[in-house]
C-alpha cells in the first residue's frame, strides 16, 4: 500500500474573521508530484504553512511523514525540503556561506557534489552574495539548497514566480532530476498551469479556502470539458445535462462547462435537444482551471459588441 506522506483532516484557518482555509481534507501519497493550484488568495500559501507548522490551525490537524505538523521534530524537518515563496534567503551570505550554513543542519545526508553540480549547471559563482543575485538565480540557489540534502518530501511555494521561461525550464528540469529518484514526493504550488501540466501527476485545486479537486492530472484533464452547441432557434431554457457546471447562452448558442460526462452522453443530449451541431473545445490545463474555478454567472471583464 502506498504510504501517505501528507494528510490533513479538517484543516481550518481564520485570519481574524476572514476564512483562509476551510476544512481542508487532503491525502498525498508517497512518490507523486502534486501541483497545488488556486487563484490569488485561494489559500495555497496558508495551507502550505499550516502543513509545515509555521502557522497554527484554527481547527483540524495536519500530519507530515507521520508527524503532527504542530510538533515537527528536527529529524522530520531534515527529511522535508522547503522552497519558500519568493526565495527569501539571507541576503548578506554568499552562496558558499549559505551552503555551509545549510549543511550544518544535514551533517550526514548533505550531498556536496550534487549541490556543487547544480550550482555549476546554473552557472552561479559561489562567492557571490545573495543580494547580488537576480530572482531567477535565487530560485536556482533555493532549489539546490532544498535538493542537496536529498529530502523525501519537497514542498515548494510558487517556486517559478517571477522567473522567465528559460529559467523556469531549468528549474523544472532540476525538479525532474529529483523525481527520478525513487520514492520522492513533491508538492508545489503554482500559478503557471503549464508547469503543473508538464511535471505533475496529481492536481489539487483550492478555491476560496475550500478544496475543489484532488485527483490525478489525467482524471482532471479528462473530466473538465467545454462544449459549444449551435441551435437553429433559441437554445432550450432548461439544460439538464449530466455534470453541468456552468452554462452560458447567446441567441442561438450554448456554451457548457461539464464535469465528467462521456462524449457519447454529450452527443446524445445534443441530438435530443435539437442542436444543429456541437463541438467539444480542446482546452489546455489553464483553460480548464479557469473554467473549473470560475464563479457562477461569471461575466467577462470586457464584452465586445458584435457589429
Amino acid at each position: 500500500m502506498t504510504e501517505t506522506v501528507l494528510e490533513t483532516e479538517g484543516l481550518t484557518k481564520y485570519y481574524g474573521s476572514t476564512l483562509a482555509v476551510d476544512h481542508l481534507v487532503l491525502k498525498i501519497p508517497q512518490g507523486c508530484i502534486c501541483g497545488f493550484v488556486g487563484r490569488n488568495g485561494a489559500g495555497k500559501t496558508t495551507a502550505i504553512k499550516l502543513m509545515l507548522g509555521l502557522l497554527r490551525p484554527t481547527a483540524g490537524s495536519s500530519r507530515l511523514l507521520g508527524c503532527d505538523s504542530a510538533a515537527l521534530t528536527p529529524a522530520i524537518r531534515q527529511r522535508i525540503g522547503y522552497v519558500t515563496e519568493g526565495h527569501r534567503l539571507f541576503r548578506w551570505m554568499s552562496i558558499a556561506e549559505l551552503e555551509k550554513f545549510q549543511r550544518s543542519f544535514f551533517p550526514k545526508q548533505w550531498d556536496h557534489k550534487f549541490f556543487a553540480d547544480m550550482i555549476e549547471y546554473f552557472n552561479l559563482p559561489k562567492k557571490r552574495k545573495i543580494k547580488h543575485l537576480s530572482i531567477g538565480e535565487r530560485a536556482q540557489v533555493s532549489l539546490a539548497l532544498a535538493l542537496a540534502p536529498n529530502p523525501e518530501l519537497l514542498i515548494m511555494d510558487d517556486p517559478t514566480l517571477g522567473l522567465d521561461a528559460a529559467i523556469r525550464r531549468q528549474f523544472l528540469e532540476g525538479m525532474i532530476e529529483l523525481i527520478m529518484r525513487q520514492g520522492r514526493t513533491v508538492l508545489f504550488s503554482s500559478h503557471i498551469l503549464g508547469d503543473v501540466e508538464r511535471v505533475s501527476d496529481r492536481i489539487v485545486v483550492i478555491d476560496k479556502g475550500v478544496l475543489r479537486a484532488n485527483c490525478s492530472l489525467e482524471e482532471f484533464r479528462t473530466a473538465v470539458k467545454k462544449v459549444t452547441l449551435s441551435f437553429p432557434d433559441s437554445p432550450p431554457a432548461d439544460v439538464d445535462i449530466e455534470g453541468l457546471l456552468h452554462c452560458r447562452r447567446s441567441e442561438k448558442e450554448l456554451e457548457l462547462i461539464l464535469i465528467g460526462p462521456a462524449d457519447e452522453h454529450i452527443a446524445e443530449w445534443a441530438q435530443r435537444n435539437g442542436a444543429e451541431k456541437y463541438h467539444i473545445v480542446k482546452m489546455n490545463l489553464e483553460d480548464q482551471f479557469i473554467e473549473y474555478t470560475a464563479p457562477p454567472n461569471h461575466r467577462r471583464l470586457f464584452q465586445w459588441e458584435e457589429k
Binding site: 504553512k49 509555521l54 528536527p74 524537518r77 531534515q78 519558500t84 539571507f90 541576503r91 543542519f105
Partner: peptide, 14 residues
C-alpha cells in the same frame, strides 16, 4: 521585513 522567518524556522533545529 525580509520574510526570511520561514526559511529559518524550517531549519532542522527546534
Amino acid at each position: 521585513f525580509t520574510r526570511t522567518w520561514p526559511f529559518l524556522i524550517h531549519r532542522s533545529a527546534n
